[in-house]
Computed example of a mutant assay.
Amino acid sequence: MMLFLHDASLYLLYAALVLALFLAVERSIFYTHAHRQLQSLLQSLHERRALPDFRSGDVGAMVVAAFTHGLHATASQKIADDAAEQAYIRVQHKLTQRLWMLDTIVTAAPLLGLLGTILGIFDTFTALAKSGISDPQGVSAGIGTALLATAMGIGTALICVVIYNAFLAWIERLGDETKLALLEMSKQTAP
């Protein structure tokens, strides 16, 4: 039974690693797309061209929506500020979606690895108690297998913390680009 639980902890760690890698690819594509949208919007604003058309739910569409919801020449300063702040909050929410999963994996993976190690060592000692120390090589192999869970948990957490921190830095840059676009829009619509 303990060996089954040890193996289950390893499979959960493999699943967590696969999920983390999937999130890394998905968020990278999303952030690249958002960056291109914001750059396109900023370029249109600097060149005083028509604002680009974005699909509903896109980061660019959220920023452009601020223009129609109060960031225009006839709006008061309070309404314009509120529209810009709402757009920024919506963009930040969209950018931080699903990052909680990476944060959870960073916390849970080492603990799950430690649990797998404890269960594996427990299984090794149970086998020792039944048969005695007749096979030291078998005991060493059992402990080595048990320690694999700890190594897997720490490795998974390490990979995830690097990805998570990189994404936080990327979100900060995209947030700054969003603020620049909103400021540029408000300058151009000021009376």
Rank of each mutant, 00 (worst) to 15 (best):
L3Y: 14
L12M: 10
L13R: 03
Y14C: 10
L17D: 14
L17G: 15
L23M: 15
L23F: 13
V25I: 14
R27F: 05
S28D: 13
S28F: 15
I29F: 12
F30R: 07
T32W: 11
T32Q: 12
H35I: 04
Q39K: 15
L42F: 03
S44M: 06
S44W: 01
S44R: 08
S44G: 03
H46R: 10
L51C: 07
P52H: 06
F54T: 11
R55D: 12
R55K: 11
G57N: 06
D58I: 08
V59A: 08
M62G: 04
V64N: 01
A65R: 07
F67H: 02
T68S: 05
G70C: 03
K78P: 01
K78W: 02
A87V: 04
I89F: 10
R90P: 00
R90H: 11
Q92Y: 09
L95Y: 05
L95I: 04
T96N: 10
Q97E: 07
R98C: 02
R98S: 10
L99Y: 04
M101S: 09
V106R: 05
V106E: 03
A108L: 11
A109C: 03
L112C: 03
L119N: 01
T124C: 08
F125Q: 01
A127H: 07
A127G: 11
A127V: 11
L128S: 04
L128M: 09
A129C: 00
K130F: 06
K130P: 01
K130D: 10
S134E: 09
S134K: 08
D135K: 02
S140K: 15
S140P: 15
A141R: 14
A141N: 15
A141Q: 15
G144M: 12
A146T: 11
A146E: 14
L147R: 03
A151E: 00
G153E: 01
G155H: 05
G155Y: 11
T156A: 15
A157E: 06
L158D: 07
C160R: 09
V161T: 13
V162I: 13
A166C: 09
F167C: 05
W170Q: 12
I171W: 06
E172R: 12
R173L: 14
L174N: 04
D176W: 13
D176L: 14
E177C: 09
E177S: 13
T178Y: 10
K179H: 13
A181W: 12
A181I: 15
L182V: 05
L182K: 08
S186C: 00
K187D: 13
Q188G: 15
A190S: 05
